[in-house]
Amino acid sequence: MVHKAKLSEIDEIIELKLSMFRESGYMDLLADDAKQRIRQKYIHLYQNDEAAHFIVKDGDKIMACCGGFIKSDIPYCFFKQPFYGFIGDVYTVPRERTRGLATELTKATIAWLKSKGVRTIRLLASEQGKPIYQKMGFVNTDEMALALQ
Rank of each mutant, 00 (worst) to 15 (best):
S24A: 15
F138P: 02
K71F: 10
A125Y: 01
D142I: 04
E15T: 09
G59N: 06
G129V: 01
P75H: 00
Q81I: 13
A52R: 09
V93L: 15
K61N: 10
K71Q: 15
K71D: 07
V93Q: 10
I70N: 03
K35P: 00
D32I: 05
S8I: 13
G137F: 03
D60I: 14
F54I: 13
R119K: 13
K61A: 11
Q36G: 08
I70Y: 07
E143V: 15
K17N: 07
D49F: 11
A125L: 05
A34Q: 02
G25I: 11
G25E: 03
T103N: 15
W112H: 05
H44E: 15
D142T: 05
L124V: 13
M63G: 06
C65M: 11
L146V: 11
G88W: 02
L148P: 12
G59Q: 05
Q47H: 14
Y84C: 01
M136D: 05
F69L: 05
F83K: 09
P94V: 02
V93M: 11
I14L: 02
K61P: 04
I55A: 00
Y76F: 11
D28V: 06
A125C: 05
A52P: 06
K6A: 11
A147E: 10
L29M: 13
A5H: 09
K4G: 08
G25H: 05
E12D: 08
K116L: 05
R22E: 14
I121P: 00
S19T: 04
G88P: 01
L146I: 09
R122S: 07
K35V: 01
M20S: 08
C65E: 13
S8A: 15
D28W: 07
W112D: 02
K116G: 04
I10Y: 04
L101K: 02
V2D: 09
K35A: 00
D73C: 10
R119G: 13
Q134L: 08
F78A: 12
M136P: 06
I13M: 06
V56S: 07
M63Y: 10
K130A: 11
K41A: 14
L18D: 07
Q149L: 10
K135E: 05
C65F: 08
D11Y: 08
L123N: 01
F79K: 15
V56Y: 13
Y91P: 00
E127I: 14
T92V: 08
S115L: 12
T106C: 04
M20V: 02
F83D: 02
M136H: 07
Q149Y: 11
Q149W: 08
L101D: 02
I121L: 02
I121K: 07
T120G: 04
E50P: 06
